[in-house]
C-alpha cells in the first residue's frame, strides 16, 4: 500500500490544500470566547426560516457558499460536496445540497463528521478524482434537542455532565492546487495542507448514560490519537496544537489522565492539547454544564478559529480529532451502550 502507513493512517502525498473555510454560528456561540473568529453570527437562531431544520440547512448552505467564495472559486468549480449533520436521514445536509445543486455525498459520523468529511475529501482530491471538493458539518441546538432529548419548553434539570449541542456550521474547500494568494494582504496568509488522516475504530466503553457523552467518547479519541502517533512515528512534540472535537470539560480531564497513562509527554500535552467543546462557550456565564457538543462544535472551531490562526502563522502543525457518539434515538431505550468514534487529520502550513 503506497498511501497507507501503519494500521489506520493514510498519507496524502499530493498534500491537498484547504483553500477556503467558513464558520457560521448561532447567537449563544457568538457570545462565547471565540466570537471574533466566526464569519457569521446569527442574530436569531431561526435564521428567518419557519422551522429549525430549515434554519440549520440554511446555515450549512451559507457556510459552504462563503467557503467557496473565499477559495476564489465558484459553485461550478466544485466537483463534489461531502457533508453531514446529526438529523435523521441527514436532513440538513440533503436539503442544503438540494439548494446548492452540486454532486453530493452525505456522511454520518455523529459529532465526528467534520474530520470524517475532511478525510474523505482529502482522499478524493489526493487520489485525483476531483480538483475542488467542499466538506461541511452542522448541528443546531433546537433540532438536536427535539430529536435526541426533550421539547425545548419542557421544564427539566440537566445533570452537570450534560453537554450543550452547538448551533453552528463549518465548511472547508479542499483543493488540489493552492488558490492564487492575495498578494495585497500583509502578511500573506499561509496555505494549509492536509498531510495525514487516521481513521478511527468504534470503541464502546459500555457507558449507557446519554448525559455522559464526553466520557463515553474519550477512549475512542485517545485510541485514534495514540494510533496516529504510532503509525506516523510522531509524538506530541511534533504538533503545535492537538484539538479534540467535543469531549467537554469532563472528557478533557479524562483524556489528559489517559494520555498520562499512555506515557505521553504531559508537559507538552498540557500546553498543546485542548477540546473544542471547552473552547466554544464561557463555562459559568453561558451555563453549558459539560461543555459544547454536536458536529458544529468542532466544525466551527476548526474552520473559524484554528484555520485562521494557522493562516496567520500562529500554529504550524495541528492534529484535529472530531469525536462522535454513535448512538441512535432508539438504542438507549433498547439498553444499548454508547459507541464512540474519532477520526484524526494532520494539517500543516507551508
Amino acid at each position: 500500500m503506497k498511501n497507507k502507513i501503519g494500521k489506520q493512517t493514510f498519507v496524502f502525498r499530493n498534500k491537498p490544500v484547504i483553500t477556503g473555510e467558513c464558520a457560521v454560528v448561532g447567537t449563544k456561540e457568538g457570545q462565547g470566547p471565540l466570537k471574533e473568529y466566526f464569519d457569521t453570527i446569527l442574530e436569531d437562531d431561526t435564521y428567518g426560516e419557519n422551522t429549525w431544520e430549515k434554519a440549520e440547512s440554511r446555515m450549512m448552505e451559507n457556510s459552504i457558499m462563503t467557503a467557496i467564495r473565499k477559495a476564489g472559486l465558484e459553485k461550478k468549480n466544485i466537483e463534489v460536496m461531502l457533508t453531514g449533520d446529526l438529523l435523521n436521514q441527514l436532513m440538513s445536509s440533503s436539503f442544503s445540497a438540494r439548494d446548492i445543486g452540486v454532486p453530493f455525498i452525505g456522511l454520518y459520523g455523529a459529532c465526528s463528521t467534520m474530520t470524517l468529511s475532511m478525510l474523505m475529501s482529502s482522499i478524493i482530491v489526493d487520489g485525483e478524482f476531483a480538483e475542488n471538493v467542499v466538506c461541511a458539518a452542522s448541528s443546531h441546538y433546537c433540532t438536536a434537542e427535539r430529536q435526541f432529548r426533550m421539547p425545548l419548553e419542557h421544564g427539566n434539570q440537566k445533570p452537570p455532565s450534560a453537554q450543550w449541542t452547538a448551533t453552528a456550521s463549518g465548511a472547508a474547500v479542499i483543493s488540489k492546487n493552492p488558490c492564487k494568494s492575495n498578494e495585497t494582504l500583509i502578511p500573506i496568509p499561509k496555505e494549509i495542507f492536509i498531510t495525514h488522516g487516521t481513521v478511527g475504530k468504534i470503541i464502546d466503553t459500555g457507558m449507557k448514560d446519554s448525559n455522559q457523552m464526553g466520557a463515553a467518547m474519550v477512549p475512542a479519541a485517545v485510541d485514534t490519537i495514540l494510533n496516529h502517533f504510532e503509525d506516523t512515528g510522531r509524538t506530541p512534540d511534533d504538533y503545535d496544537i492537538i484539538l479534540t472535537g467535543d469531549l467537554g470539560y469532563i472528557g478533557k480531564e479524562i483524556a489528559l489522565d489517559l494520555f498520562a497513562d499512555a506515557g505521553l509527554n504531559m508537559k507538552k500535552m498540557h500546553l498543546c492539547y485542548d477540546d473544542c467543546g471547552t473552547m466554544l462557550y464561557y463555562r459559568e456565564s453561558e451555563d453549558v454544564h459539560g461543555g459544547g457538543s454536536g458536529c458544529g462544535c468542532s466544525a466551527s472551531v476548526f474552520t473559524g478559529y484554528l484555520f485562521k490562526k494557522m493562516r496567520a502563522g500562529i500554529f504550524n502543525r495541528a492534529l484535529i480529532v472530531s469525536t462522535g457518539a454513535m448512538l441512535s434515538t432508539i438504542s438507549p431505550f433498547q439498553g444499548e451502550s454508547i459507541p464512540g468514534i474519532a477520526h484524526a487529520i494532520a494539517i500543516e502550513t507551508s
Binding site: G206, D209, Q212, I254, G335, P339
Partner: peptide
C-alpha cells in the same frame, strides 16, 4: 440480552463508569 462482541463486559463497563464519575461534578 446477549453481549455483543464489541462491547466490554459488565465489570469493565462498571469500572470505566466509576472512573469517569471521579471526574464528574456531583449535582448538588
Amino acid at each position: 440480552m446477549s453481549k455483543s462482541k464489541g462491547t466490554p463486559g459488565k465489570e469493565v463497563a462498571k469500572a470505566y463508569e466509576k472512573y469517569a464519575m471521579t471526574f464528574t461534578p456531583k449535582p448538588r
